[in-house]
Amino acid sequence: MTNASLSEGAARRSVIARLIRRPTAVFGFSLIVIAVAAAILAPVISPYAPDAQHFDGLTIEGAPLPPGGAYPLGTDLLGRDLLTRIIHGARTSLVIGLAANGLALLIGTLVGVTAGYFRGWTGAVLMRFTDLMMAFPALLLAICLAAIFQPSLWIVALVIALVNWVQTSRILYTETTSLTEREFIAAERAIGAGHGRILFRHILPHLLPTIIVWGTLGISTTVLLEATLSYLGIGVQPPMPSWGNIIFENQTYFQAAPWLVFFPGAAIVLLALSFNLVGDALRDELDPTQRGRD
């Protein structure tokens, strides 16, 4: 191990140490751990199978059952156990959250860094395209895309990624342009270093904190967009549960059976909140321009 990586390791440890002292970050992180555990262990910890429609899960008039008894959070309009649906819904939210956000981050980084590093025509074209994407109302675009590609889990992730990369690309573009003007990059160029070397050895490592911060905050945006698409009935296909489509399927009953909206709604808010809290703490700790502001 070289000295440099040693001190980097120490810096990283101190970031973690500082994060641990932030109660909001710890709260957010714990909720994320719970959600991930629920998603992985869903088949083990769920009381029932996610698609099982129980004949005793509906009243004779076809109304859902309130929380309590055999169904801890009540049943939905098909007589399925709501708790089981919510636990399994964590899988959908997290898989789409991670996949879509990963892809969006990849596209955003690629476009932002390329445009910021090369500038000129390439940069101009890429950034004008980014501007164009920013002028689209995101939800309308997502709805059109979802109609073209008939939705499935991965298509929904793809649609969200195609809508969500723009912000990341804008931020990384600005950071990259200011980085390339710094002396050490000019020095590298002077000694004839290739683009690949400069990009991967110098630019990307400097961008990493920003990417981590926006990557974490972006998961929250992604989770919310997935929930919204599912709420509009154009998200993942039934019977796969998603917190958004649980609300979509049951909202006609929300006055008589508000738990059918509240429980999945709370799940969405808590998961998105967790990623926001952790992302915010990371920003404070990792982003040099933000540090020491308060």
Binding site: L77, L78, G233, I234, P238, P239, T252
Partner: peptide, 13 residues
């Protein structure tokens, strides 16, 4: 994809 049709489809399924 409008309620109640996806629900009915799941019952059929």
């Amino acid at each position: 994809n409008t309620d109640p049709n996806p629900r009915i489809a799941q019952a059929i399924q």
